[in-house]
């Protein structure tokens, strides 16, 4: 049915690539955009292009940023001795939202996965070790997810980092096993940071 309106079909196909968006929802969104004034559609298209043009990864912590190094890495008010390791930028955002952590971050851009054969070489591990060898970090807070992958990553990190004489801690449980950090509420993340335990 959509074949007769190629430009509409094209938008539906693009929207349906979004996570959690099926063809039905994509069609609904396309009709919504069709009814919007031209300026609104331009604002959306512009925002998407700006995102791709301006945002890259911080060369120090690998969080998403518009400036390199990112504002978190250059903020003088943060504790240089505390470094929090997360899997993804959205996990960093979850911890920032909880307002419980005032150190700096390192985003691994993934997690070790025995089941998928993803080893340390595929992640930002060597960059992390390089940062730790700089000597300023006293404590590494491992804030990986409470999944098999997150647990494997935490165990591996503890084994690599402890010999450097750096304290390694992990978010306290209270975050249920199997959870992705991005879906945990702020208060729980806050308690988990406050109650972090040695690994």
């Amino acid at each position: 049915m959509l074949d007769s309106i190629p430009s509409f079909a094209r938008l539906v196909a693009e929207l349906a690539k979004f996570p959690g968006i099926g063809k039905k929802t994509a069609t609904r969104l396309a009709f919504f955009l069709l009814r919007q004034p031209r300026a609104e559609a331009e604002a959306l298209a512009g925002a998407i292009l700006e995102l791709k043009e301006k945002i890259g990864f911080c060369s120090r912590c690998f969080h998403i940023t518009e400036s390199d190094p990112c504002p978190i890495c250059t903020d003088p008010g943060r504790d240089e001795g505390l470094l929090c390791v997360v899997e993804q930028p959205q996990d960093l955002i979850a911890i920032e939202r909880s307002r419980s952590f005032r150190g700096r971050y390192h985003v691994l851009q993934g997690a070790l996965s025995p089941l998928d054969g993803i080893g340390p070489d595929q992640l930002r591990f060597s960059e992390l070790l390089q940062r730790l060898k700089g000597g300023a970090v006293r404590e590494l807070l491992v804030a990986t997810n409470f999944t098999v992958e997150g647990d494997a990553t935490a165990l591996y990190l503890a084994g690599q980092v402890r010999p450097l004489g750096i304290r390694v801690t992990r978010l306290a449980h209270g975050i249920p096993t199997g959870s992705d950090l991005e879906f945990v509420d702020d208060a729980t993340v806050n308690r988990a940071v406050e109650g972090r335990r040695d690994l």
Partner: peptide, 9 residues
């Protein structure tokens, strides 16, 4: 076997 590589490492 993908997990083999992980194990061997």
């Amino acid at each position: 076997i993908k997990s083999r590589e992980f194990l061997d490492r």
